[in-house]
């Protein structure tokens, strides 16, 4: 059976691969959260209201460590700033039947992957398709967190310890292929890592809260390389 383009069902189906990917990432997040001291319900609530992997991972230590609200807000702002660009880009692709009210809902789940799939459609995307496309990934994200948080409470310590690297391994899997493709990205990444290590292992600097360290290192590295090695225009329009 041929699934009709731009329908709710097509959106659901296009969202399935994202959903499966999210199950494992959010599973790792669930484990990480309960290991950090959050309850199962708290972990799931974070996933259901934030829907962003890196942002949530950075938020957990700030929450459990009793960090400042400003630190949390600033961290989320920097880590999630890329979504602003994606939302700008997505706004250019919306069919006229996507009303203002729909934009408020769709933007809530405008993740990297949802954005990537929505963008890969030729022509404009309609509202029913978008609702389908955000539904399956959202369910995967929430239920994966629940499973991970529960598993974190029942699995033996040595297994939990091993699963602790899962989310970082996924980050490696996102960064390395892109760094392999573009040498400027590789250099930016190495520079950011060097800065991060300086903050971790230098006396005095090591007392700066983790959230701020992420902001400082990421903004400094990105701004420096955006100035020195800007990305060629035609490519960057696809981001």
């Amino acid at each position: 059976m041929q699934i009709q383009k731009n329908t709710f069902l097509k959106g659901i189906i296009d969202g399935i691969p994202i959903c499966l990917g999210y199950l494992s990432v959010s599973f790792a997040f669930g484990i990480f959260s309960v290991e950090s001291g959050l309850s199962i319900l708290e972990a799931v609530l974070i996933s259901m209201t934030n829907v962003t992997s890196a942002g949530q991972l950075a938020a957990v230590p700030i929450i459990t460590g009793g960090g400042a609200f400003l630190e949390l807000a600033a961290t989320q702002l920097v880590i999630n700033l890329r979504y602003a660009l994606m939302s700008v880009s997505l706004s250019q692709k919306l069919h006229p039947n996507v009303r203002l009210f729909d934009r408020f809902i769709i933007s809530f789940v405008n993740t990297d992957e949802v954005f990537a799939v929505a963008s890969s459609n030729t022509g404009e995307v309609k509202r029913n398709y978008l609702y389908g496309l955000i539904l399956t990934p959202y369910l995967g994200w929430a239920s994966g967190t629940l499973l991970g948080a529960v598993a974190g409470n029942i699995l033996p310590a040595i297994v939990i310890s091993s699963l602790g690297v899962a989310i970082y391994a996924m980050f490696v899997a996102i960064v390395v292929p892109e760094a392999k493709k573009r040498s400027c990205t590789a250099m930016c990444v190495v520079f950011a890592i060097a800065l991060s290590c300086v903050f971790k292992y230098t006396p005095l600097l090591c007392h700066i809260p983790q959230g701020f360290v992420i902001i400082i290192c990421a903004v400094a590295a990105s701004a420096l390389f955006a100035a020195v090695m800007p990305i060629p225009q035609p490519e960057s329009e696809d981001i």
Binding site: V189, I193, A218, I231
Partner: peptide
């Protein structure tokens, strides 16, 4: 545009190491 392109990779790297 370039800044927004670099940000996710820089953020993920800093969060991963150390």
């Amino acid at each position: 545009l370039s800044f927004l392109y670099y940000i996710p990779y820089a953020v993920l790297s800093v969060m991963t190491i150390p």
